[in-house]
């Protein structure tokens, strides 16, 4: 049971990085960016092929993050310069990335198993730490550290002049243009940042699970969105630092729900292949919550606001 929780936390922390990215595009920038389904495996693909070639995994992760940012810029370019609608811009990037990811990896999946002798950042950390401590808490603690660090950096960024302009773009585009901000630029910065985080999440996850797969991005946007809205439903924070914390907790709760479904769901005829269906249904229920509440006039649910 303890291992189960640890496992959920490990996945939840990595997943939270993606969710923070989704928060930037969907909420802060109010841009429904579907590129995520392509940039998540992009991060994994870049890191996998570089580790395969023997490049230092930390350098590989930086390159993977930058690649995600570049893909985000492409989505932004489609929208701001070519005037393609936000949803379509994201879908176009996603579909282009499918082929690009296959090109990068050269095949549909790459194994990074330490038994094959590949050095991921996880094997490096374990090697380094071996002489000091050997604890199963080491990896989740390091993941937690990464998430907390990213959260604080993001909090600070969203309070800078540029961060404010990005948030105002998502809130009231007319106003911020009248205040002399080029909203094309703020959208480009926001999308680049969002997809960098998503790609970093993919890069970390590939190393954590020991492989990169072309299909690992399918439905990630919905999963990320599920985390964001789960967090928002559980709390009702209004300041940035509370909201980003919500998103992280939302990601962990979401992973927990998925893990529970996978572990005990077979009693109810649930199969691992039903996972995406489950995620989809979860998001539908949460999104439909206000309507359901209104229809059923469930008084005790009135206080819960989404």
């Amino acid at each position: 049971m303890g291992d189960f929780i640890l496992h959920v936390l490990e996945e939840g922390f990595l997943f939270a990085i993606l969710s923070l990215g989704v928060y930037i595009s969907f909420r802060a920038l109010n841009f429904p960016d579907l590129s995520v389904d392509g940039t998540y495996p992009l991060g994994a693909a870049v890191v996998a092929i570089m580790i395969l070639k023997g490049i230092n995994p930390f350098i590989a992760m930086i390159i993977a993050t930058l690649a995600g940012g570049l893909a985000g810029l492409f989505t932004g370019f489609l929208h701001t310069r070519l005037k393609i609608a936000p949803l379509l811009s994201g879908i176009l990037t996603m579909i282009c990335l499918y082929s690009i990811n296959l090109r990068i990896m050269g095949r549909p999946n790459i194994s990074l198993s330490p038994y094959l002798g590949y050095r991921t950042f996880i094997t490096i950390i374990k090697e380094e730490a071996n002489s000091l401590v050997t604890s199963k808490y080491l990896i989740p603690l390091i993941f937690l550290g990464i998430v907390i660090a990213l959260k604080f950096l993001l909090d600070i960024f969203l309070h800078t002049e540029i961060g404010l302009a990005i948030r105002a773009t998502g809130d009231n585009e007319e106003m911020i243009r009248a205040e002399g901000v080029n909203t094309d630029t703020t959208k480009l910065i926001g999308l680049a940042l969002s997809n960098s985080l998503v790609a970093l999440s993919g890069a970390l996850f590939a190393q954590y699970q020991g492989f990169s797969d072309i299909g690992m991005g399918i439905g990630m946007i919905i999963a990320g969105l599920a985390s964001v809205i789960t967090g928002e439903a559980l709390f009702r924070g209004r300041t940035i630092s509370i909201i980003t914390l919500e998103v992280i907790i939302g990601a962990i709760v979401y992973r927990l729900a998925i893990a529970v479904a996978l572990k005990w769901g077979y009693n109810f005829g649930f199969k691992p292949t039903d996972l995406k269906l489950l995620t989809g249904l979860l998001v539908i229920i949460i999104l439909a919550f206000p309507v359901i509440r209104k229809r059923m006039k469930l008084k005790f649910l009135k206080d819960i606001k989404i």
């Binding site: 404010l164 302009a165 809130d171 205040e179």
Partner: peptide
Amino acid sequence: QGTASSLTVEENLAIAELRGKRKRLRLA
């Protein structure tokens, strides 16, 4: 129309004070 409702009063004022100026990577 003239203000961003999810931003605080001081954040809105900070944006207005920076009107037409280059936005930088420093606390607003």
